[in-house]
Amino acid sequence: MTVTWEELGWERLAPGVGRCRLPVWDCTVGLVVGAGAALVVDAGSSLAEGARLRTRAQALTGDRVTHLALTHPHFDHVLGAAAFAGTEVYGAVGVDALLGSRHGREEIRADAVRHGLPEPSATEAAETLVPPRHHVSGEWTLDLGSGCQVLLANVGPGHTAHDLAVLVPGDPEVVFCGDLVEESGEPQAGPDAVPSHWPDALDRLLSLGGEDALYVPGHGAVVDAAFVRAQRDALAARFGVSG
């Protein structure tokens, strides 16, 4: 009996490509399935959430998760990463230094607790967090088999100093944007944001995906190029960025 994406909690976006919206912080996690390989985009907010994601992904693929891409180093996107032990982990260059330092992990842990994650869960996840092995400084192509190639692109800084986007070619093309794009509320600019470069990062997203792509925000519903362009213009106005 074949189990569908939807039955396992995934929203199918294109052949072999889906996403799910996690509870509490409405964070999006992506899934790209190749031949004997699978890429998860972001890891959830805790070890328990990461483990549930990995189980749901493997139930769908019938195989193990082989790759994990972290779009940026905020707690709701990275604290589940240790549940993906044994995978090849990718992040924008610089994320490795942040996640590999005691100070960086403590900042992530404290931010998670401020946002309501129980302190024991936040502490456990932060203490086991390891930096990505693969550091993307420009673009990196992953071959997931049977012609399924995924492009990882360092498009930041913007929402943070280390923003990674994931482009899945196809019909339609799908772009996982991380929190460079948010649909369920106004984009959040915390102390690690780089507002002067954020509109440029969205221009790079648009150049990657083009007019007909599906753009998957870090939070909220899937959007189109017109939405990304409007958010780019709103951010430029909000932060006084010209061009």
Rank of each mutant, 00 (worst) to 15 (best):
H159C: 02
V181H: 11
V136S: 01
V130P: 08
C177A: 15
C148P: 07
P157Q: 05
P172Y: 15
E183N: 15
S137D: 14
G147H: 07
D143I: 05
V155G: 02
D171E: 15
F176D: 09
G178D: 10
L152Y: 05
A153C: 13
V181W: 12
E183D: 15
A165N: 04
E183P: 12
L152P: 11
T123S: 03
V175C: 04
L151K: 07
S146P: 00
A126N: 01
V175D: 03
T141F: 05
E182H: 13
R133Y: 05
L129P: 14
T123G: 00
L180A: 13
G170Y: 06
F176P: 02
E182L: 10
V175W: 12
E124V: 08
P157I: 03
E182F: 13
A125C: 08
W140M: 06
A125D: 08
N154F: 06
R133V: 10
H135T: 11
L180Y: 10
E183Q: 15
G156N: 09
A122T: 07
P131F: 08
A161Q: 14
L142T: 13
C177E: 10
V155I: 14
C177I: 03
L167A: 11
T123R: 02
L129K: 01
A165F: 03
N154M: 05
L151N: 04
C177T: 11
D179A: 06
V181F: 14
S146A: 15
S146K: 14
P169K: 07
A125Q: 08
